[in-house]
Simulated scan of single mutants.
Amino acid sequence: MAVGDSVTSGHEARPGRAVWTTFCDDPGAGPAAPGSSWAGTLRAILGVPWNRYFNFAHSGASTGDVLLTSPYVNPCGVVSQGARPQIGDATAVLAANPSRKGNANVAVVTAGANDSNWVAVATQLVSRNLGGAIGGLFGAAPAWAVSNAGTCTDWAMGNPRGNPTPGVPRGPIPAAWNGPAVSAALSANTTSIHLALIGADPGAQVRQHLYYKWIGDPNMPAVCGPAVLRATNMMNGWISTGVLVAQIVWALRGGNPARIQAVCPALWNPGPAFVQTRLISFGANWALLPGYPHPNAGGRASMANCVNGTLPKAAGGGIA
């Protein structure tokens, strides 16, 4: 069972004859259409039959979308989840197919990055780095923001004391990223997602895959590496707090909190090994979609193997 955002939905840009095309949601449907989601890779590792694999994740979804949005329209213009939001469909399937001893259901989640405007902030930094038509399409961070690591961090995170670097406007620097402002809601929604999943099937193993931290992206200004890592660490911290609260609440209700975990905050160098760095492609609706770094085949395998390593195995080969 999978819910969440583009990292899990199978969001991928693929080469075509003239332009690259983005598939916003391609979770996989069978041997002839395996999709491009790490959850599908995990399915294969665990030996789960295709008819026991359910992926309700959607590109662009926030934690609020997972819990509440119906119908959902992804960035490619595809309408889905018409009757219930992701969590409604996921919990219905889990409740109807409960875990058995030695054969626990596995529910995985990625969500939280879209609760804030982080993708827009990262896109503006990339636009400043690449310049030209790219900056005109998506808007670019000011030139002073990429003067050095300090100015990039101050532009993204804000600095009430200001920054003395030449070219930086005098006075307090407002934060371009609104992450801290939405952090409490992000944590609370994360708690709700996990309690809903484990509540639907108390025997399940629920795993929140934390966001990978990427370094050395050729599209991102090199001086902005510290800001990118700081933002990702902060998001993972808020998500982990939400998971911790879910563990505490579940324990107070008499459940096993070890069945809920936040795992795998990997550090990747994007290159060809883990992250697809395609910047721009077209969606199914021919709308330009900026290329926030999504996992390629190597990255999906890394994510799936990491989560698999956190799952306790039963004597018979299933999940305990």
Rank of each mutant, 00 (worst) to 15 (best):
A181R: 14
G150K: 07
G171K: 11
P160I: 11
W214G: 02
N178L: 07
P221H: 11
I193G: 04
L210D: 06
N178W: 10
L197S: 06
G158P: 06
I173T: 05
T191Q: 15
V146D: 03
H194P: 02
G216H: 13
D201Q: 14
G203W: 11
L186V: 06
M220K: 09
P174S: 04
L195Q: 04
V206G: 01
G199K: 04
N148T: 03
P172S: 12
A188E: 09
L186P: 01
A204N: 08
S187H: 03
A200L: 13
A181S: 14
A156R: 05
S192T: 15
P221D: 13
L195E: 07
P166A: 09
P180M: 00
S187Y: 00
T153W: 11
T190V: 14
P180L: 02
T191L: 06
S187T: 10
M220Q: 14
W177Y: 05
N163P: 07
N178S: 08
D154G: 02
G171C: 04
G179C: 06
I198T: 02
T191V: 00
A184V: 13
A196R: 09
W177H: 00
I173F: 05
V206C: 10
Q205C: 05
K213P: 00
G162M: 07
R207D: 02
P169D: 12
T151V: 10
D201S: 12
A156Y: 04
P160M: 08
W214L: 10
A196M: 09
A149H: 05
L210E: 09
K213Y: 00
Y211L: 11
H194M: 15
P218K: 13
T191C: 04
A204S: 15
V206E: 01
P164Q: 08
A149C: 08
N219T: 15
V146C: 06
G150H: 03
P169Q: 05
A156V: 15
Q205N: 11
G158Y: 04
C152Q: 05
W177R: 00
I198H: 02
G158S: 01
R207I: 01
P221L: 13
W155G: 04
G199H: 09
R170M: 08
S192I: 07
L197N: 06
H209G: 05
R170Q: 15
H194A: 06
R161Q: 15
A196L: 08
S192W: 02
D217V: 10
A185I: 11
W177G: 01
M220Y: 14
G199P: 10
Y212G: 12
N189P: 00
P164D: 11
Q205D: 02
P172F: 12
I173Q: 04
W214Y: 15
A181N: 09
Y211P: 01
H194Y: 08
D201P: 08
P174K: 06
L210M: 12
R207E: 03
V168M: 07
L186G: 01
D217L: 08
A204P: 03
R161T: 13
A156C: 06
P172D: 10
P202S: 12
H209M: 13
L210R: 01
Y211F: 15
S187L: 07
P221G: 11
A184Y: 01
T151E: 07
Y212F: 14
I198Y: 01
V206A: 04
N219G: 13
P160S: 12
I173N: 08
D201K: 11
W177A: 01
P169A: 02
G158Q: 03
T151P: 00
D217G: 07
H194W: 01
A185K: 15
